[in-house]
Design a protein around this nucleic acid. Sequence first.
DNA 1: CAGAAAACTGAAAACCTTTTCAGATTGATT
DNA 2: AATCAATCTGAAAAGGTTTTCAGTTTTCTG
Lengths: 328, 328
Amino acid sequence: MSVGIKDVAVAAGVSPATVSRVLANRHVKPDLRERVETAIRLTGYRPNLSARRLRSQHSNTIGLIVPDIRNPFFTALSRAVEDAAYKANMRVVLCNTDENPSREMMYLRLMQEERVTGVIYAPTRETAAQLDRLAFDFPVVLVDRHGPAGKHDSVVLDNRQASAALVEHLCGRGFTHIGGLFGNTSSTARDRLGGYTEAMSAHGLAPRADFVAPNPDAAAVAARDILSRKDRPEALIASNGLILLGVVQAMRELGLEAPKDIAIAGFDNEIWTALMGPGFTVIEQPVADIGHSAMRLLFERIETPDMAPRVIMLSGKLIERNSTRKPC
Amino acid sequence: MSVGIKDVAVAAGVSPATVSRVLANRHVKPDLRERVETAIRLTGYRPNLSARRLRSQHSNTIGLIVPDIRNPFFTALSRAVEDAAYKANMRVVLCNTDENPSREMMYLRLMQEERVTGVIYAPTRETAAQLDRLAFDFPVVLVDRHGPAGKHDSVVLDNRQASAALVEHLCGRGFTHIGGLFGNTSSTARDRLGGYTEAMSAHGLAPRADFVAPNPDAAAVAARDILSRKDRPEALIASNGLILLGVVQAMRELGLEAPKDIAIAGFDNEIWTALMGPGFTVIEQPVADIGHSAMRLLFERIETPDMAPRVIMLSGKLIERNSTRKPC
DNA sequence: CAGAAAACTGAAAACCTTTTCAGATTGATT
DNA sequence: AATCAATCTGAAAAGGTTTTCAGTTTTCTG
């Protein structure tokens, strides 16, 4: 029914092996090659990737495992990964874990069954912690989040530095009572917390951090609480774009405005951060760069499996907007 | 090296066929099944999906072809599709076309080679137009956009109605000079234009439509022009979320505010539309529903290949916010 | 309890390629 | 012109599973 390499071979008066070689661009004499190529065109042959993968033992597939593609950071990441992948003639299969360790495990198992060439993966802290106990048959590059101390290839933002930069910025503008609202699932949130705490201490200020599931709704609930406290902070740092959104929502509900009632700073330079209200001060992540770097690391790891693990740390860029202006 | 079904068979003292049957949950006597299952556990066997696909001739893979995953509508759609897919034990491979017909063709060809079970696809108008000349070996469900008159399974918003609802709403609030900024690549934008034009005419009003590539930057450029005209409209409709974003950006640059200087309405109920400025009046699309319906259609088509094509048309929901309040 | 039907199992074929191996051809070198 | 190396080609094996076919065991029926 479907036309295979054999049919092409017959049509071209040649052996299947030769057709295969033409397809793989190996040396076959011009006249034969010619005949095969027209035969391919005539028969409308399309290779069967399953067969090809089975025999050649590599899948041309990379897995992308992220918490939730709806987080704009991961959306942009996935786009970068997909572009790089298809340029290298690879497919991307997409997996959302919802920060759920058991979903993570099931997807990792799936990647194994799929015999993927490699995986790009943003693990929860829980799974990341036992990452070296897990042994994979494929290279894994962690992205946005790291595993146990430098044991795995990874591409992350310099989160401590970025977080500290936010604190510096707020201090520079005269704020001293600076709160932070951090995600509770990722190493990234932890690192941002670390940078925040250190920088606060360095300025002799008392850190005051809260933790929350990294989604707008949960963040809004927490933010409502923080913003309603008697000792409401003068400034609040949100540890990612979704949490920032929750904070903004809570402020709206409480009728508060930045920077008049409280200064706000966060992560992820989503379009709306520039367009909404006063404009929000954020750390911009080089997300396309993160994606491309991850793919590069992956390819290099495939090339040279025994290389020592590498951690690429990219720096964020502080984008100052009016949400952190000191109200006169 | 890798443990296969044969190794399991040996370990269990049984034939490979039996192992296969256990795996596929077919009738095999309890004691054998037991032995096989422990053998599987002991050996750490993981099926090889390529081999399985090659032999069984179905791939458990569905392709998702969208213009750009970064468009939040398609992000949400992909999430819905992925959820449904993995529930049905299928993988999703993701393809971004950038509204580029040649990329569309290459991805469709790829889907063919991948022998996918089916494809969910948001085509450009250009490719959609010749969709019945293309013959695929797999079922295709169009989503968000339709092909030539009801010839293909598809799930779309009732775009004409939704667009008309926006016009009605604006008329009801006393606006008469209502402009529209529409995308220029999709059937959807066309339909929204149609609804807009009709509804305007029905009210004896003159439609005034502009067209633009459906991304924020292009939309901002066009919007700057529209908003700077001497006869700037009293109200402006943006035909999707990205274009709405461009409009908002242009307004900000020009120092205009909704609804004071101009009323704004659009499509896609992104979080920011509720949170930004006055709150933006939009048509909310039941995007998760669209994704699930598409998957359902796909599965039913696989089940019953000869069924007549079906078009599911879902209605949008008008969400009134203050961007369309009549300024006193 | 015999015979028929049903359920179960294993050997081997099949799925479609790529790859290996060996043979054949070509081209270069003496 | 003969030899050697290099290049090219085809036959056949291999990759890991499912499926078919046929044979065996069990269950059911009368």
